[in-house]
Simulated assay, not measured.
Amino acid sequence: MKVVLFCGGQGLRMRDAENVPKPMVHLGARPLLWHVMKYYAHYGHKDFILCLGHKAEAIKSYFLNYNECLSNDFVLSAGARNVELVGSDIHDWRITFADTGLHTNIGQRLKAVEKYLQGETEFLANYTDGLSDLSLPAQLEHFHRNGKIASFLCVRPNLSYHLVTLPAGESLVQDIHPIDNGEVRVNGGFFIFRREIFEYLREGDELVEAPFQRLIRERQLLGYSHDGYWACMDTFKDKQQLERHLSSGAAPWEVWKRPALH
């Protein structure tokens, strides 16, 4: 199944994203984009379509000059003249680099790559700014079982704010609790679409506004709730938190490092 990755944003709230697209901000030895792609590749989905925009050349250059040694064991011999890789990351990945415009919104970026999805009955998509330990096979099974056009991940927000219940026109608080402990759910940015999604996407539409409202009216939009790990990298503080997970040696989103189930 093909995977559409939205990589064209500017990451205006990320201090590290001043000179590169936000998906190219590094977590350890690899950029955020690589972590997202590695997640999908782990589940067997290795045909990627990158929707490029802001500083597209940085993404192209990264993969054109990809160094497998940065995230794989290798053997060096003959006075550093021979390098023998013990493992490999991207040897079986297929990546389409698509220019989808500098200031294009997400919906129109998706529309711009429709031609690369010819013949596909369904496909995956991702905002490429969040990481999760979501069981993708479970979300796919839920999607197929319900037979709808679209599904998106619903998660509790990883915010340090408190949600306040304050009736309009009143000042007496009825309730206050951490926003991530309540019933509030946000769009986690992991999507599954049938090809029919393009019938709901009009000229100029943002993805989750008018098109999703059309899907809702026709009872064609699924929300897949996930209470496991999910984190979005919107700010430098978010990046620091993700780096702490990575340096611990047990980053929750690194599902490819888990023991295989038999």
Rank of each mutant, 00 (worst) to 15 (best):
V186L: 13
L5P: 01
V155S: 07
F48M: 07
E206F: 02
V184S: 03
E243K: 07
S135P: 01
G189S: 09
N126I: 10
G249S: 07
S132Q: 08
A260K: 04
R81N: 12
N67M: 09
E199L: 02
D73M: 03
L64T: 05
E183K: 03
L246Y: 12
P252E: 03
C232E: 15
R109C: 12
R13L: 13
S132E: 13
V155Q: 05
A80T: 01
P157T: 06
A150W: 07
E199P: 00
G188Y: 05
I149D: 07
L102K: 05
D99V: 04
N19D: 10
G107A: 04
L70C: 05
R214I: 01
I149A: 15
E18A: 09
I59Y: 13
H162N: 14
F48Q: 09
R15D: 11
N181K: 15
L102P: 09
T121N: 14
Y43A: 07
E114D: 12
Y40C: 02
Q241T: 15
H42Y: 11
R13K: 10
I176A: 15
L201A: 07
H226V: 10
W34K: 01
Y127R: 02
Q108W: 10
L64C: 00
H103S: 13
L70P: 06
A231N: 14
I216E: 15
